[in-house]
């Protein structure tokens, strides 16, 4: 059942997923029409494997036996047909069946193609155009397998990370928090304002393809400027900080993990002592400012996680699509060269 839920999440997150959901609820391309294409692919796998095992050509298994030519023709046809899906899915509302059916066929017959292509070679590989076509086919299928797995796993995590929101609303929220922080900082003093302006300038959302995929984004200098801000505030509320040092650690609020929460820990320290000194208006503003900055930081991190998950969800296409074009050309060269030197 978990798989079904996951697949449902997948549908929700996939491009055009909502439309698909409206068209045919509770049915993903994996299990389309009671896994019709899965069963078809499995049946063909068994049948082709049996024929291959029984077939005993005089020259050994290769692409030039009747079975080799047959598998080659079927494989080439499948490659062209599966590639057509790339064009076809751009207009998936046409009358020729829903997109899940096409996608289901694409996934399962694409996997079947791995068997057909491999048996077509007769395991005769070398440094030539024929093997190039085979290697490209394997790469396309491998990237496709990654894509299918990614669509099965990542959408649920994306949904979880977004907490019901959307990326656009999260970006708008960051803008709002920036504005709020600026107006709060402006009420404290010019230096606090300058610190916040600098921190806004240094917010980094997303990054290079490598950063997006690894999820390790180059750290902005945001932390350092805010630290200097706190240093200034410490100086301003020096007495309060000094008094706080004398207080037992247990009285401070629960500390987040040290690595992530050093700054917010410091923040809480400062806030505590501002309140200790009474309802200082500037201190209340500062409290609000720090809360806003903490919220913004959490949001920025979530946006970056979202970017990473979406990058990992779509990266395979940047291999799958260009490699498919290469495969089609290599396939043409493969077929032509076979008949050129017949």
């Amino acid at each position: 059942m978990a798989t079904v839920d996951r697949l449902r999440g997948l549908l929700r997150a996939s491009p055009g997923g909502r439309r698909v959901e409206k068209l045919q609820a509770h049915e993903s391309f994996f299990t389309w029409r009671r896994s019709y294409y899965l069963k078809l692919a499995l049946a063909l796998t068994v049948a082709i494997s049996l024929v291959y095992l029984v077939h005993d050509p005089a020259e050994g298994p290769s692409g030039s036996t009747w079975l080799g030519y047959g598998l080659g023709t079927a494989g080439a046809g499948l490659i062209v047909w599966l590639s057509w899906l790339g064009v076809r899915k751009r207009s998936f509302t046409t009358a020729r069946g829903p997109i899940q059916g096409w996608l289901s066929a694409h996934v399962y017959l694409g996997l079947l193609l791995l068997l057909i292509g491999t048996l077509h070679t007769g395991f005769q590989l070398g440094f030539n155009i024929h093997t190039l076509a085979y290697v490209l086919m394997v790469l396309v299928i491998a990237s496709g397998i990654y894509g299918a797995v990614a669509y099965g796993v990542l959408p649920a995590r994306i949904t979880l990370n977004r907490k019901g929101g959307e990326l656009r609303s999260m970006l708008v929220e960051i803008e709002k928090l920036n504005d709020t922080a600026l107006s709060l900082a402006d009420r404290i003093d010019p230096e606090a304002h300058a610190v916040v302006v600098r921190s806004i300038a240094k917010i980094r959302l997303g990054g290079s393809a490598w950063e997006q995929l690894t999820g390790r984004y180059r750290s902005s200098d945001d932390a350092r400027s805010l630290d200097s801000f706190f240093a200034m505030k410490k100086q301003q509320f020096g007495e309060a900080v000094g008094a706080a040092r004398a207080r037992p650690q247990a009285q401070s609020k629960p500390q987040p993990p040290p690595a992530a929460g050093m700054r917010s820990g410091t923040t809480m320290f400062v806030i505590d002592h501002i309140f200790d000194r009474g309802s200082d208006k500037a201190a209340v503003t500062l409290n609000k400012l720090l809360q806003v900055i903490a919220d913004r930081k959490e949001l920025v991190e979530r946006v970056n996680v979202d970017i990473t998950l979406r990058a990992r969800l779509s990266v395979w296409l940047y291999l799958h699509v260009p490699l498919t074009v290469l495969l089609l050309v290599a396939l043409l060269a493969h077929v032509l060269s076979v008949f050129l030197l017949w």
């Binding site: 959302l205 290079s208 990266v315």
Partner: peptide, 23 residues
């Protein structure tokens, strides 16, 4: 500010059509 960074692989400069055609 730096917030105009690439929010997706497409924005980061990854392309499909050009490498496909060149390849």
């Amino acid at each position: 500010r730096a917030s105009s960074s690439a929010l997706s692989l497409g924005e980061s400069g990854l392309r499909m059509r050009r490498p496909a055609l060149i390849g």
